[in-house]
Design a protein around this nucleic acid. Structure first.
Length: 571
RNA sequence: UGGGGUGUCGUCCAACGGCAGGACAUGCGGCUCUGGACCGUAGGAUCGGGGUUCGAAUCCCUGCACCCCAGCCA
């Protein structure tokens, strides 16, 4: 700490340019606005699971609070009982915590302020700035005007028709449940001719005889977003109220309410939401994918949800690094999913222990290896982390290798096993392919090799070199696992529009039931374990795992240079 | 055609009147018991047209393109 400022010195703020929001904050602090206080919040509606776009917002809000030694609230914006559920509240709390955004004891609910909001509404009515309107939903729509034409005033708008006292009584009767749903609203009296549609006497309260997940049947009038949100920020003393671009048009209304009430006034700042290539990010569409079973729930590893990514094996640190890299701005943008995957690989490379596992097995018999012999060869657990140590991997006469690592007629630059070629079995021996066994239809069933005993451990005493090193698992010692391979959910870079379902990737999930893994992994395999299958990618143990079945998810593949070369050769 | 926003490498973000830079992606090379990781290297951008200025991505004018808004959703 710097004793003069109490600000942590470890951040890189001098070296990195400020994003535009932090620039605003520093300008604010320079003139002493908010007494140099910074207090942010993440205000989700509990009507769905959080996705990576929310992660951007959470980490921006939390990171901003940390950077300026401020506070961060988690506040549920739960003003619409029809759409909201406790299940969503619980999942959101879990996700925010998992991301590392610490809201301390400030787990808050907009619904806790309903009484206060009600009292504020009475204040506005008393000021002559709000009125009860009997127009139906359709009538309100018809009198709102259009983008280019002014609206017309409600007949209930003017005090000549309805005195302040009558409005007050009507509003109290609304709250008391005397009217059916949709029969009346409380509206702000602003300007039906405003070019900003949000200012055309916006609705503050609607009647909804619905049970709320927290307040039950206590209320039958519920505040609208524009009315509620600024008050929630105000009540909590939020300084910088960060939201996405589509609320820019709402800022004049946000300001109007707070100014008319003379209430504490936080500053709304808008930034552009995150779009990611090859996926969809709207709650509506994610809900549809879940409800129509295109995926297996909100936490399906193909989903861009926080819970899906967690199940897929992504780390919160990787997601944090990703959101750092993408920055914050106001222009519409679609981030390449490759950047996310890079962040995931980068972190997993440092922390994931390595194991060997065979996804598509091909049996290899080492003819000159003694039938009953077995030995245990030393393997490095993580070349990026010496403290991860080593382990012993069993070896025997019959092993499995990856079917893709053998070709009868190899193309140029294929550095793997082929008739007559020698490769290294990782941490084991050099082997040379001597024979191929096929079935009646010509499919390769197994291959035969000879090994060089002098190369034990993988080094040749005579200094001869091999181009390729492949992974393997001893057949006798192998354990079986189900491996789920995930690919992008959509085939289109931007699956936009109403026909987005047409771009669903039919190959986004492939289940391999006969995978062979080394015993050390089997012993350590508890759900959530993240590891690398050497040469294949990063994987994790899925919670579907039980005593009878080990289920493994592929998180992300390793960069595959050979696939690129092979792809070019095919073209 | 009202109002509010936004235009910089393929993508995302910087440059705050003074050499357009970084990351990812891509190409090439090196290294390697993971064709991984890592290292090096190359190509690649200021929406158009005017103007101000010694000097413009940045300021002014003028076009153009894209996004958002007519829920008793948030």
């Amino acid at each position: 700490m710097n004793p003069a400022t109490d600000i942590p010195l470890n951040d890189q703020s001098e070296s990195k340019p400020l994003n535009f929001i932090h620039q605003i904050i520093e300008d604010d602090n320079a003139i002493g606005k908010f007494q140099k206080r910074v207090h942010t919040r993440f205000p989700p509606e509990p009507n769905g699971y959080l996705h990576i776009g929310h992660a951007k917002s959470i980490l921006l809000n939390y990171g901003t609070a940390v950077k300026y030694n401020g506070k961060f609230n988690l506040r549920f914006d739960d003003t619409n009982p029809i759409k909201e559920e406790d299940e969503y509240v619980q999942s959101i709390i879990e996700d925010v915590k998992w991301l590392g955004a610490d809201f301390e004891d400030r787990l808050l609910y907009g619904s806790d302020y309903f009484q206060k909001m009600y009292e504020y509404a009475i204040q506005l009515i008393q000021k002559g700035k709000a009125y009860v309107c009997d127009l139906s939903a359709e009538e309100i729509r018809n009198t709102r005007g259009s983008l280019t034409e002014a609206g017309t005033e409600s007949p209930y708008r003017n005090i000549c028709n309805r005195s302040i006292n009558v409005n007050l009584i009507q509003f109290q009767l609304m709250k008391a449940g005397k009217f059916p749903d949709g029969s009346k609203t409380l509206r702000a009296k602003i300007d039906m001719a405003s070019p900003n549609l949000n200012m055309r006497d916006p609705i503050m309260y609607r009647i909804l005889h619905a049970d709320h997940h927290r307040t039950g049947a206590e209320w039958c009038i519920y505040p609208m977003y524009d009315w509620a949100h600024g008050l929630e920020d105000s009540i909590e003393g939020i300084t910088h109220s960060l939201c996405t671009l589509e609320f820019e048009d709402h800022r004049p209304l946000y300001d109007w309410f707070l100014d008319e009430l003379g209430a504490y006034h936080s500053q709304q700042i808008e930034f552009s939401r995150l779009n990611l290539s090859y996926t969809v990010m709207s709650k509506r569409r994610l809900l549809e994918l879940v409800q129509k079973k295109y995926v297996n729930g909100w936490d399906d590893p193909r989903m861009p949800t926080i819970s899906g990514m967690r199940r897929r094996g992504y780390t919160s640190e990787a997601i944090r690094n990703f959101t750092e890299r993408i920055g914050v701005a106001k222009r519409d943008s679609t981030v390449d999913v490759a950047l996310l995957e890079f962040s995931v690989r980068e972190h997993l490379n440092k922390i994931a222990p390595r194991y060997m596992g065979i996804l598509n097995p091909l049996k290899v018999i080492i003819d000159n290896y003694p039938d009953d012999q077995e030995e245990f060869l030393e393997a490095i657990n993580n070349p990026e982390d010496e403290s991860a140590g080593t382990r012993k991997v069993p070896f025997s006469k019959e092993i499995y290798i990856e079917a893709e690592d053998f070709m009868e007629a190899p193309p140029k630059k294929f550095y793997r096993l082929a008739p007559g070629t020698e490769v290294r079995l990782r941490y084991a021996y050099f082997v040379t392919c001597t024979n191929i066994v096929k079935d009646d239809r010509g499919n390769i069933i197994e291959i035969h090799c000879t090994y060089d005993p002098a190369t034990r451990g993988g080094d040749s005493p005579d200094g001869r070199r091999v181009k390729g090193t492949i992974h393997w698992v001893s057949a006798r010692h192998a354990k079986t696992a189900e491996v789920r391979l995930y690919d992008r959910l959509f085939t289109a870079e931007n699956p936009a529009g109403e026909k987005y379902l047409e771009y669903l990737n039919p190959e986004s999930l492939k289940i391999l039931k006969n995978c062979h893994i080394e015993p050390a992994l089997f012993e350590n395999a508890t759900p959530g374990l993240r590891f690398q299958f050497e040469r294949l990618g990063y994987f994790c143990v899925d919670p579907d795992t039980n005593d009878n079945k080990l289920v493994i998810n592929r998180t992300v593949t390793l960069r595959d240079t050979w696939a690129k070369i092979a792809g070019k050769q095919a073209r």
